[in-house]
């Protein structure tokens, strides 16, 4: 119990963000037509690629003698970039086709 209280006090700001973002996330896509389910999923997929920021921090902080951290960090940067770049490009390709005939 003490741990939970401590946790909430320590991370107030973050917890507020979590709660607000849950509502924003639900509100924002609430009325999406089923036509857009696939592109929306793909777009959201690209957005969670923000995890790349964590990978960059891990990589940048790695000590140059710590090979495990270097290799894992490098791998994480590659994977994160794949997620971001691949995600946005695939989504754009899908949506390009919707717009073309207008």
């Amino acid at each position: 119990m003490e741990f939970i209280q401590q946790f909430i006090t320590d991370n107030q700001q973050m917890i507020y963000i979590v709660i607000l973002m849950i509502f924003v996330g639900i509100e924002v896509i609430g009325r999406v037509p089923s036509v857009l389910h696939t592109p929306l999923m793909s777009g959201a997929n690209a957005i969670h690629g923000v995890v790349i920021i964590g990978a960059i921090i891990v990589m940048g902080k790695a000590d140059s003698s710590d090979y495990i951290a270097l290799i894992l960090g490098f791998l994480a940067v590659i994977l994160g970039t794949l997620n971001v770049v691949g995600g946005f490009v695939v989504t754009d390709r899908m949506l390009e086709m919707f717009n073309k005939k207008k």
Partner: peptide, 15 residues
């Protein structure tokens, strides 16, 4: 990272 992640987490669950 926080906003992006939770946003996708919530929207993805609804989706």
């Amino acid at each position: 990272m926080m906003t992006g992640g939770i946003l996708v987490g919530a929207a993805g669950t609804l989706l």
